[in-house]
């Protein structure tokens, strides 16, 4: 069929055969090893420092201006900053009321904060559990923090895997989009345990520069 472009042919074929529509990675970001990257380009780096110092200086550098950030646990700080960078890049605002689902995953769950909380209750002679720490002893609280800032009342899930699982995540997100449960999905991996951390978040949309599939996700991760 020389008179039909490959893209057009693929589109017509999908429509005729009722195949699932393709989705795309519109933008992505990484936070790891004291650096922040947006779409593969470095936006912040802070030499050698611990996570707390690094994430605080990244917050200031990115002019995040959200005082509640300082009350969050480390997992929420990591997820929030990565999500905020992406959503601001996509010009998302709380006023827009967009239907953006949030699907996050990691390996360590909220273990980093669970340990901190456990330390506060292990001595029965000095038993003063902190409510402010306790509320973060679930991994999906970080989704709540993102949703609160952007007023997202959307579908959300947090999965625990041994490793980044693009097969499961891409199926799940495609399903959300295919069934119109969401217009876009903010998805990815956000993991922290002690000083080991990594965030890789991306936005899946109907259009974008990178096809949303497991190969591309593995490569980007």
């Amino acid at each position: 069929m020389p008179w039909v472009s490959t893209t057009r042919y693929s589109f017509v074929k999908k429509r005729c055969l009722k195949l699932p529509k393709d989705h795309y990675i519109k933008s992505y970001c990484h936070i790891q090893e004291n650096s922040v990257f947006l779409n593969g380009q470095p936006v912040f780096e802070n030499g050698s420092s611990d996570f707390s110092t690094f994430i605080k200086s990244a917050y200031k550098h990115l002019e995040t201006d959200y005082p509640k950030f300082f009350k969050m646990d480390n997992l929420s700080k990591l997820a929030f900053l990565a999500a905020d960078l992406l959503l601001q890049h996509e010009k998302t605002t709380p006023e827009k009321e967009e239907n953006i689902a949030i699907v996050l995953s990691n390996k360590a769950s909220s273990l980093d904060t669970d340990r901190k909380y456990q330390r506060s209750i292990q001595d029965k002679d000095n038993f003063y559990p902190s409510p402010g720490v306790f509320v973060y002893t679930l991994p999906n609280i970080c989704i709540g923090e993102i949703s609160i800032k952007y007023k997202l009342y959307s579908e959300n899930s947090f999965f625990i895997f041994d490793n980044f699982n693009p097969v499961y995540l891409s199926d799940y997100c495609d399903n959300l989009l295919q069934n119109r449960k969401a217009d876009k999905v903010l998805c990815g991996w956000v993991d922290i345990d002690k000083e080991q951390y990594k965030a890789f978040l991306y936005i899946i949309d109907d259009e974008g520069p990178i096809l949303h599939n497991t190969e591309e996700l593995n490569q980007l991760f």
């Binding site: 003063y128 902190s130 409510p131």
Partner: peptide
Amino acid sequence: LGLDSIDALELIVMLDK
């Protein structure tokens, strides 16, 4: 100061501790 309900609980713990 814009404190919230969790902060209120923290203040109660602080009074005790």
